[in-house]
Each structure stands twice: as C-alpha cells, then as structure tokens.
C-alpha cells in the first residue's frame, strides 16, 4: 500500500464536502474517482497534496511518513507532503511567462536545486515522451489545449514524484484533443506510475484503472474493480449516474 487515508473530513463553512472518507492507494496502481459535480471528488484529490487542508484525517505512507490533519500542519509537513506528488490541473495552469521547456525545468532547478544542464536534458526527454519535441521553445499561448495539458504532465513528471494526481485532465479540452492527453496517461499507467485520476471519461477510466471509486454527496458510495463498478454497479445512485453520463440525450 503506497498511501492509506483514514477518516478524511473537510468542510467549507457549513458545507460538509468530505464526510469521513477512507481510501487506499496501491503502489503502482491507478485509482479513478468518478461522481457528479459537487460530490467531493476534486476536493478529495486536492486534499492529497494539501492544496485543501482537511479538517480531519490521517495519511500513512508506505515509507513511514504519517500526516495527521487533526492539528494544523506545519509548513514543513505541507512541503513534505507536496514533494510526494505531482499534479495535473483541469485548466493546465502552465506558467504563461515561460516556454514549454522553462515550465518543465522550473521545479527541478528552482525547488530541487538540480544542475540546470542535466534537468534540461531530462525535460527534453519528457517533452519528447509526451510528443512535444518540436514545441519546446513555444509559450503556452502558442499551444493548443491538448499540447498545454501534455506540457502540464511533463512539468509534474519532472519533479519525479511518487504519486501523480490528475484533476479532470481532459474536461477543458475540445473533443478532438482529448485522445492525445488520455494516451499519455495510459502510457504512464503501463510504466506502473501510481496515479489518482478524477475524470468524467468512463470508457477511459474502465480501460486504465485498477480500482474505481464512485462518490456522491461527500461519501464513497461504491468502489471496486472497474468492471464491477462501471459495468455492473450494485448501488442505485451509481447506476443512475452512469446512465446519465453514457446516455446524455
């Protein structure tokens, strides 16, 4: 088990977004989280790197690191936690004043203080891997959404995280650009990256995931292997949700 989350709770004001959630993330496996908007799935993901600070809960990592949210985290704990994971955002959030290559090397050079020449080599390789070898010196506004998102993936990978987090990585993309991003994520799955993906792409989730969680109203309603949850759901709410997504008209 790479990470075990116990008793995670988070409220925004009076709105309880996560209600006592337990999650287990296996080393080298892909966990997908699906659910209607407002179900708490994005908040759950953002709690995993403390972009949202949970009100309660305990994270236990396989290497012995334990983060307890019952007390407010220290700055050091937050940094320790963030170092474990890389994140890919729905709206890419590339740095607009930096080229694709500069976006990718920023973290390793500035935060990890690694040798710039070596990092540039690594960044070129990562950008090649996501199919952008000829776009390295372009600024984000010169790239399509799908290309920007692939730079976003390379930027996260460059930090060499143990866990990759994806927050609806294709939701902002035009339909014809979704495939190129999903292909990159599938490749990562084949390389046994440990990943958590919040997505609305049911077909993709069923192909790439080892485990699927369906959330609604701040709870985990149902979880299991993709063919169980996505093909033969037991819970009525899961059935209704899948039916709405797969037969929109």
């Amino acid at each position: 088990m790479f990470l075990s989350v116990k008793g995670l709770a988070k409220s925004f004001g009076n709105n309880e977004v996560l209600k006592n959630i337990d999650v287990e993330i296996k080393e080298g496996s892909v966990l997908s989280i699906i659910g209607p908007s407002g179900s708490g799935k994005t908040t759950l993901l953002r709690c995993l790197n403390a972009l949202e600070q949970p009100d309660k809960g305990i994270f236990s990592f396989s290497d012995g690191l334990i983060i307890n949210f019952d007390n407010k985290l220290t700055k050091k704990e937050i940094l320790q936690l963030r170092r474990k994971s890389g994140m890919v955002f729905q709206s890419y959030n590339l740095f607009p004043h930096k080229t694709a290559l500069e976006n990718v090397i920023e973290g390793p050079v500035i935060v990890q203080k690694r040798n710039k020449a070596e990092v540039e080599e690594l960044a070129r390789e990562l950008l090649r891997k996501v199919g952008l070898e000829d776009k390295m010196n372009l600024y984000p506004h010169q790239l399509s959404g799908g290309q920007q998102q692939r730079v976003g993936i390379a930027r996260a990978l460059a930090m060499e995280p143990q866990l990759m987090l994806f927050d609806e990585p294709t939701s902002a993309l035009d339909p014809e650009l979704i495939g190129e991003v999903l292909r990159v994520i599938k490749d990562l799955a084949k390389e046994n990256w440990t990943m958590v993906i919040v997505t609305h792409e049911i077909q993709f989730a069923s192909e790439v995931s080892d485990h699927v969680i369906f959330m609604d109203g701040g709870y985990i309603v149902e979880q299991g292997k993709p063919e169980e949850v996505l093909k033969h759901p037991k819970e009525e709410r899961t059935k209704q949700f899948l039916d709405r997504i797969l037969n929109p008209a």
């Binding site: 994971s85 994140m87 959030n93 740095f95 973290g107 500035i110």
Partner: peptide, 30 residues
C-alpha cells in the same frame, strides 16, 4: 493573477515566497 498560478507553484514544491518571486511577480509586473 489567477489562484491556479499559485497552486501550480505549490504543486512543484514551491513555498509561498518562491512562488511569489518566480511565478506571480513576473506576471504582475506586466
């Protein structure tokens, strides 16, 4: 500057002051 720019800085391990200096201020200058 959109909050996502701060968050992108945080997710690559930046502290608040590093994100301000490297990510936010260059954009705010423009």
């Amino acid at each position: 500057i959109p909050i996502g720019q701060w968050e992108a800085g945080f997710t690559i391990g930046m502290t608040k002051s590093t994100a301000l200096r490297r990510i936010i201020l260059p954009q705010a200058t423009r």
